[in-house]
Design a protein around this nucleic acid. Sequence first.
DNA 1: TCCATTGTACGAGAGTCGTCGTAGTTTTAT
DNA 2: ATAAAACTACGACGACTCTCGTACAATGGA
Lengths: 133, 133
Amino acid sequence: MTTNASRVLAHPSRDEIRVEGVLHALADPIRLRIVLQLAAAADEQACSHFDLPVSKSTTTHHFRVLRENGVITQFYRGTAKLSCVRTEDLDALFPGLLDSVLRGADLQARRLGGADASSVALSGTAAGRVEQP
Amino acid sequence: MTTNASRVLAHPSRDEIRVEGVLHALADPIRLRIVLQLAAAADEQACSHFDLPVSKSTTTHHFRVLRENGVITQFYRGTAKLSCVRTEDLDALFPGLLDSVLRGADLQARRLGGADASSVALSGTAAGRVEQP
DNA sequence: TCCATTGTACGAGAGTCGTCGTAGTTTTAT
DNA sequence: ATAAAACTACGACGACTCTCGTACAATGGA
């Protein structure tokens, strides 16, 4: 089986998403980094594709915070757990919020770290590719 | 004297403001409410003009968090301490972020509470007047 | 001068958060 | 059947957050 019914993840419905929750979820450097990379990658990515400076359990924790606050969707495919940003829901509820946060984080990364960036910026392949024409 | 040198408050410079810090400051319902009211009021307001469901010391705490994260400026005038949003700095650093957060909070308040709103919405005079043409 | 107003400092308590390691589950591949 | 890969659950720890009350400081007016 590709998607097992016993492994369904709980997500808040669109109506249950709160702006405080979204802001809280995005207020952590590691989570912001995750969302930045997720948004840059267009399609879904597995948790294991992220090179984060924390342990595996902590990574799980951060992904759960993002999911429970309505920032990302997650589903299983095989042993992997794929994630993507809930762009449509967030844009409908809080127009422009996600974009300005991502853009602000990107501007800050450029401003602070230059090329390789620092705390919030991406480390891997898709580094810093947000709204860059 | 109107402004006493012994009562100067420390503010982060524009360069020291971090997007994570701003998001964290705005992620609390009470602080979001403060900023919403402050933004609606155009000019500065004293802390005592806010009718918050917490004690005086807690109010002091929340205003300090907002100031230390670069969201508001504060200065003394007589016994009062006036605050206003650092709109210019925030817009320069993170274009559109403040506006979309305030607008999102306002939309949420309408959506959830109807007229009088609930957790985040304003209680007093300037209730819900954000970007409403 | 004395007092009312406004806000601060400090300490404390309850709760949440970010982090970890270890042990376990689910799936896929051999 | 066995092993490897990917992720989770649980308990723990320290740090931070939100809250409060009490005691204190600065200002402005009677």
